[in-house]
Computed example of a mutant assay.
Amino acid sequence: MVPGRWIGPARFPFPQGTEVGEILPKGSEVAPVKDSPLPRRERKKLETKEKIFNAAIELFRKKGFENTTVEEITEKADVGKGTFFNYFPRKESILNYLGERRMMAIQEAFYENIPEDATIEETLRRIFEILARENEKEKPLVKLIVGEILKSRESLKEEAHAGQLFFKSLLEALIARGQDQGEIKKEFKALKLAEILEGVYFSSVFKWLDSEEDRSLVEDLSEKIGILFEGVRQK
């Protein structure tokens, strides 16, 4: 995962060479092209960032976000404060980085988990499944992050908005491609369908986080996407 350009395979809905700043939050990192090894220096930087991130997340789980200090994070990660701030300008940036990792997981899906001949519906289902499974792995952590975003933390809200913009842009691009390929009805605007899908995703996540029941977010989203496509699928 190195700073640079967002590069995807031919079926990825953004053009090869798309600037990161056009889609992702400023300063985001993206996955390297598959089979392109990272230079040693970049690999070392990523390892250091991951070490800080993992140390922070472990402390957040034990003590909570508010009660964890930067000093405790650097001590656990065995790095200096200067090194910490080289990678994370503030403590909240660690939570933002988790969101970036979700975006990376989506891109990785296009390389390894989505067949070349997959329909747009199958592609969207797979993306939502990947995101849901990532959330299910870390429900307490996701709940913590959402709680922090909903508080008056402008930096987190800005980053969250940038992440949502990427997600909606991805959905819109895929839907538009589905319309061009005759899979989705053209009478609906791609942007509006993307906004509906985006709303379905976030409302489902919030409801799942608020529930004490052992509900499957993966199954819930799959069922809702199926209902939506019953109405927009080109017969």
Rank of each mutant, 00 (worst) to 15 (best):
G4C: 09
R5H: 11
I7T: 11
P9K: 11
F14M: 05
P15I: 11
V20D: 11
I23C: 10
L24H: 06
S28A: 15
P32S: 07
V33T: 13
V33R: 10
P39Y: 02
P39M: 02
L46Q: 07
T48L: 14
E50P: 00
K51N: 14
A55H: 00
E58M: 08
F60V: 06
R61Q: 12
K62S: 14
K62V: 12
K63E: 09
G64C: 01
F65E: 02
E66K: 09
T68D: 01
T68G: 03
E72P: 06
E72F: 01
T74Q: 03
T74G: 01
E75K: 14
E75G: 13
D78K: 13
G80S: 15
K81C: 00
N86R: 12
Y87E: 01
P89H: 05
R90E: 15
R90T: 10
K91D: 10
E92F: 01
E92G: 01
I94K: 04
I94D: 02
L98H: 12
G99M: 13
M103A: 11
I106Q: 08
Y111E: 10
I114D: 07
I114L: 09
I114Y: 11
E116M: 09
E116H: 03
D117C: 01
A118D: 04
A118H: 02
E121I: 12
T123G: 06
R126H: 05
R126I: 01
I127H: 03
I127E: 01
F128H: 12
I130R: 05
L131E: 15
N135W: 06
K137Q: 11
K137C: 00
K137N: 03
E138W: 05
L141P: 00
V142L: 14
V142E: 07
V142T: 14
K143Y: 02
K143D: 11
I145M: 10
V146A: 11
G147H: 11
I149T: 03
K151S: 12
K151W: 05
R153Q: 14
S155C: 03
E158K: 15
H161D: 12
A162C: 02
G163P: 00
Q164F: 13
Q164W: 12
L165D: 08
F166H: 13
L170V: 07
A173E: 08
L174A: 03
Q179P: 04
Q179M: 09
D180Q: 15
Q181M: 14
E183P: 00
K186Y: 00
K186P: 00
K186W: 00
E187D: 12
F188Y: 15
L191R: 13
L193Y: 05
A194R: 09
A194I: 04
A194N: 05
E195Y: 08
Y201T: 03
Y201C: 04
F202N: 09
S203Y: 08
S203Q: 13
S204C: 05
S204F: 04
S204H: 09
V205D: 02
F206S: 09
L209G: 01
L209S: 06
L209F: 09
D210R: 10
S211Q: 10
E213G: 01
E213R: 15
R215Y: 06
R215I: 12
D220P: 00
K224G: 03
K224R: 15
I225F: 05
I225N: 04
I227F: 14
I227M: 13
L228H: 02
E230H: 07
G231D: 05
G231F: 14
R233D: 00
K235F: 10
K235W: 09
